[in-house]
Write a protein that binds this DNA or RNA. Structure first.
Length: 223
DNA sequence: ACTTGATCATAC
DNA sequence: GTATGATCAAGT
């Protein structure tokens, strides 16, 4: 496996060199198996790129590149570069009385600096390929949007308004189930102080928001 | 077509 | 069970 990149520039250079390369190729270089589809290997592309770029695996609650403070995200895009799926961020504070202020939140930390690697193609995983990567930090507008969504969502969570814990809130961030199955349950106190069970939730970035990130950076590359 | 709710594998 | 990595697939 490649050693971790020593600097952000080195990471960007490695990622740039991946543009246009097929995932099958990259997997072959590392002697990793290529699944026929992603139905039972949903994290395969993300794991593959972690290996290819020298991320340190398995460091819980740490960025993928801890020494650089950078998070790696792969994101499936269509032929126009628009995201086809939402982007996982982190677990939501379900059953937590005080989520604390935005500026100390896990969402803000995880999104402080992100390397997005677009993945093109609809066929078997090995036949898909990497696009031009985007190193991103939220600008003032984006951070304000994220903060507002986070404030709204964590207020609903802290208030125990369980019936409001659906995916239709938020312009950038949304709240969705995050579990192995819907029978997964966690205990929380609802708005009337009763103990109830509900499925764990996580925060995701809407495709409309990530589309802005990818398109905004693309304009800088090709004015 | 798109979004929301549900789900899959693996490590610790 | 909680965390990592996400996509699947039903519903609208």
């Amino acid at each position: 496996m490649p050693a971790p990149p020593a600097s952000e520039n080195e990471l960007i250079q490695r990622a740039d060199a991946l543009a246009g390369r097929s995932l099958g190729d990259l997997a072959a270089e590392l002697h990793l198996p290529v699944p026929p589809d992603l139905k039972r290997h949903k994290g395969w592309i993300g794991d593959l790129l972690e290996h290819v770029l020298g991320a340190e695996a398995g460091n819980a609650s740490e960025p993928d590149f801890p020494h650089l403070g950078i998070e790696l995200k792969t994101i499936p895009v269509d032929d126009r570069g628009r995201p086809k799926q939402t982007t996982w961020v982190c677990v939501a504070p379900v059953g937590v009385l005080d989520p604390g202020p935005w500026w100390t939140s896990a969402v803000r930390r995880r999104l402080a600096r992100v390397l997005f690697v677009p993945i093109l193609g609809d066929g078997p995983p090995g036949e898909r390929w990497c696009g031009v990567p985007v190193m991103w930090s939220p600008d003032a507008d984006q951070e304000a949007t994220l903060k507002q969504d986070w404030d709204t969502l964590t207020e609903l969570l802290a208030a125990g308004e369980v019936w409001q814990w659906h995916a239709r809130h938020g312009t950038a961030l949304q709240l969705r189930p995050k579990a192995a199955t819907s029978s997964n349950r966690t205990w929380v106190t609802d708005d009337e102080g009763e103990w109830v069970q509900t499925v764990p939730r996580g925060f995701y970035l809407r495709t409309s928001f990530t589309a802005g990130i990818l398109a905004g950076e693309a304009r800088l590359l090709d004015p």
